[in-house]
Amino acid sequence: MTPNQFTRPIVWIHGDCLNPYGPALQAYPGAPAIWVWDDALLEEWRISLKRIVFMYECLLELPVVIRRGDVATEVLAFAREHAADGIATASSPSPRFRAICDRLRNELPVAVLPVEPFLAYTGRLDLRRFSRYWATAEKYAFGQKPLFDDQ
């Protein structure tokens, strides 16, 4: 996805990226942004009040409108209110996130923008055990400064 592909986007903020420097808010500063409390998820996971308080405090430091209900329905309603031509959001591995994006795409294009990666590496990784993953990942986990120079 190329950023700035939309002229009147909204930003959808979700629980895996409550960061004012997240990729969607960075790509579209000033765009109307929305958070939706997923009422079904809160019940399904029996989320306790203390988690809600913690997340609400995170939201209060972000430039977002806060609503609740069915996430896709509310995000699309918000997009219509702003006559948006697209929805920008940050990536997430969650299957629920993917399902919501699929529903949004029925009405509007969605740009899923990557969060800054931990590893400066896009090649193959063996995920069977942590030790196998780390055998490769360690070389790329230290950002610009490699830990072990080739000697």
Binding site: L18, N19, P20, L42, E43, R46, I47, S48, L49, K50, I52, V53, F54, M55, Y56, E57, C58, L59, L60, E61, R68
Partner: peptide
């Protein structure tokens, strides 16, 4: 804020009404 959220999310508050001292937010 906590009073407001107790009223808005009564089921969560009924399950466990505790609030953590750990504050959310980028500043913290």
């Amino acid at each position: 804020l906590i009073d407001y959220l107790r009223r808005e999310f009564p089921q969560a508050a009924a399950r466990s009404g505790e609030v953590s001292a750990t504050r959310g937010g980028r500043r913290e």
